[in-house]
């Protein structure tokens, strides 16, 4: 029990420290911290599902886009409040994730990856089509009084919620079931685990959190169009950062997000034409040299120093 109290305390201290960032800096570095916080929430939530199950989800971009787009449509076209639309977006994305999960998660992982691979692009096409043909092709404005600091704190709250959720899962039957599924799905079924339901529930949680993040980020752009928020690239970045950090520990993705956000930022500024190439090299580096992420490297080092 003391171990649990201690990890909760450490978590609380980290959140408090992170919350102080806007007091220390604003402008450029705050915007980088904001981006990092966004990916911390997304990658950690991604890893909660994909880590134990080994199902690689590329749906983050789609759920994120739903969050941003629904907030924009609701505020711009229907005069709804930001908070209501944030809630609606999260519910819609969760339900969509549930439907996708029911259709694909009973099958092999390959089908799931393929299905999520083009999902953001497909939804973007659909949304653009609906907008162009039925709603008139206007841009959508998200006008709020939020400053970067506000957005940052909201993202921090989501990230903290993801960690708390992960911490809770790890101690629940659901988390234990997920671990067993990741080991041997056949055994899981035959000891009485509803494998489909377990996977779908976790996948829905990634949809929920990604849509929340997308909704919260929307005010940062003020002007939203489908091409901006339904970005397939985002899905890949989430996967890379999580894998780079390591998915078998709750805090693993965090270790990947921070350095990767900085490098990504640097590359986008200095050599913007090489971002795609770099993304590819990052994937290859992870697969061939750090298959268990930074967490795996750390654990190996500790193992060696003990032995």
């Amino acid at each position: 029990m003391t171990g649990e109290v201690r990890s909760l305390l450490i978590g609380a201290v980290c959140v408090a420290l992170a919350a102080a960032v806007p007091y220390v800096t604003d402008g450029y570095w705050l915007s980088i911290a904001l981006t990092a916080m966004m990916y911390i929430a997304l990658s950690t939530s991604w890893a909660l599902f994909s880590g134990p199950t080994h199902y690689i989800s590329l749906a983050s971009g789609a759920f994120f886009g739903i969050g941003g787009y629904l907030v924009a449509t609701g505020m711009s076209d229907y005069n709804q409040s930001f908070w209501l639309m944030m809630f609606v977006a999260a519910v819609v994305a969760t339900l969509l994730a549930g439907l996708i999960g029911l259709a694909t998660l009973r099958l092999s992982g390959v089908y799931f990856v393929i299905f999520t691979l083009g999902l953001a692009e497909m939804i973007r096409n659909l949304v653009s089509w609906v907008q162009n043909n039925f709603l008139g092709s206007r841009g959508l404005y998200v006008l709020t009084d939020f400053t970067d600091a506000h957005i940052y704190w909201m993202l921090l709250a989501v990230a903290a919620a993801v960690f708390l959720f992960g911490w809770f899962i790890d101690r629940s039957r659901l988390g234990f079931a997920l671990k067993i599924i990741g080991n041997e799905e056949t055994v899981a079924r035959h000891v009485g685990i509803n494998t489909a339901w377990t996977k779908v529930v976790l996948f829905m949680s990634t949809g929920f959190f990604a849509a929340l993040v997308g909704a919260i980020i929307a005010p940062r752009y003020s002007y939203i169009e489908p091409n901006l928020v339904f970005s397939p690239e985002l899905s890949f970045l989430v996967v890379i950062m999580a894998l780079l950090g390591g998915t078998h520990r709750l805090w693993g993705p965090l270790l990947g997000v921070i350095p990767f956000t900085l490098i990504w930022e640097a590359i986008s500024i200095w050599v913007p034409n090489f971002t795609t190439l770099f993304l590819g090299l990052a994937f290859l580096t992870i697969v061939y040299f750090i298959p268990n992420g930074f967490v795996g490297l750390l654990e190996k080092l500790r193992h060696r120093s003990v032995a």
Binding site: F278, L279, G280, L281, A282, F283, L284
Partner: peptide, 8 residues
């Protein structure tokens, strides 16, 4: 990874 490298 290969796909992104080739695109790049």
């Amino acid at each position: 990874g290969m796909s992104f490298v080739l695109v790049g």
